[in-house]
Structures are given as structure tokens and as C-alpha cells.
Design a protein around this nucleic acid. Sequence first.
DNA 1: AACCCCCCCAACCGCCCTCTT
DNA 2: TAAGAGGGCGGTTGGGGGGGT
Length: 235
Amino acid sequence: MNKEKKEEMRKGPWTEEEDVQLALYVNLFGDRRWDFIAKVSGLKRTGKSCRLRWVNYLHPGLKRGKMTPHEERLVLQLHSKWGNRWSRIARKLPGRTDNEIKNYWRTHMRKKAQEKKKAKSQSSSSSSSSNSSSSSMSDSPRPEFNPAKETKERSFYDTGGVDLLAAPGEIKTGLEIEENTNIVYSMDDIWKEFEFSEESNCQAVADSPIWDYCPNDSLWSMDHEHESNTLMQPI
DNA sequence: AACCCCCCCAACCGCCCTCTT
DNA sequence: TAAGAGGGCGGTTGGGGGGGT
């Protein structure tokens, strides 16, 4: 990307026309060659920007609406296992993006962490918090997690969809995750605090006109059924 | 009614990794 | 094998909207 072109690049919010244009070209060329798509589409956006817009907003498989309690629980569990590996966590929550989960964590969990801290300082309890509990509430990845070489995992957003390269045992239920992680704190301790009054959260899939440009699932057919069945079982 | 604060979320930035040549 | 380009990811920011005072 040379400099003169860079200067022409648009930034900021996407317009509906841009969305339509992007969806059209992703439909034509797939969701891999982002620089190419950015060029041929005529959008004055960087490839990165196009990718982000697609992944976080235009992708047909995205769920809209608030996290369900079960999703929240899953996020909590996976975060306790993987730390801030948002994209990785997102792969286990079909229809949710790393950005969404990241934002969710920031707003909800930070708040909870602050509340806990406050409560703790007030009670001036001598008991030190359990290490995993604190780590689950922090933004730093768990030290035991080795981020190296998780790379060949296919992204949830891949047009191929299914995590074909994942080992057969890779997809686990929440229970299995819990079993395989040395979670020493009680999940109830944390989730006790959550109000489950939001049970009726909607999971409506976006009904944007953009989807009109997606004639079939061929490009982005994702085995969500399978993954969600596998993952979203009651814990 | 006006102002302030907080929450939510889209989007950008910079770094790092992988792929291609 | 090395270098450059492209893509992915995590962190951060800023604006809009809703609720409270």
C-alpha cells in the first residue's frame, strides 16, 4: 500500500452502500483476499478495514442481541482457561465475534471485578482470593497458557466454517472444559452474582438487507448446528 | 429540560504470524 | 532461506444512546 493511496482511504463508520458493496464482493471472491477485495470493490477502505467490517458486522452467521446466560458462562469458563484469547474463545461461541466477546468482557467482568475488589476491601477479609478467580477477572492471560502455535486453527469466520483442523477432541462441552482445566474456584461463586433475569435474551440473527447478496450458504456454510450442539449443551 | 455519567459497540492501531515469491 | 506482503489478533478509543439527577 503506497502512501498516496493511503491518504485516500476512508475511515470511520461504514455506510450502507459500502456494506452492500463489500458483501457483494466477498460473495464473489470469498473472505480471504481482503486487500484484493478492497481494491476491486472500489471501496476506499483498507483490506483490514474490510475484513473487520465483514467479520464483526456483515457475516451472515452472526448472532445479534445480548449474550445468553449460557454463553456468558461459557465465556467465563473459556477465559479462565485461555485468558484474553478472544478469537479463540469466539470460535467456541458460534455467531459471536472476538470483538463482541472482548467488549462484553470489558463491560461486564470489569465491573464485577471492581465490585468484588470493593467488597473485599470493605470486609478486609484475610483470606486471599483464589488465584484462578482473580485471573479470570483480570485481563492478562493465564501464565500457563502458551499462545504459541495455535495458528493453524481455522477461524470461525472462515468460509469453510467448521473447525476441520481441530483435533477430534478439540471441541468440548463446558463440562469437559472444566474438567480439563484446573479450575479451583467454584463457578457458582462467580455466577451467583450474576442475575439470570436476562434469560429471555434474544438471539435473533440479523436481518440486514445485506443478506440478500448471499444467495446460498456455499461460501460461508458453517456447521454451526454441529458446533452449537456440541458446545452449547447445558453444563 | 438540561446536564452528566455510564454502558455498549463499532472501528482503528500496532504487533505478530503466516504465506508467497 | 530470506524478505516482503497480507492477514489475524488483542488492545484501545471514541461516539451514540439511555438512564439518573
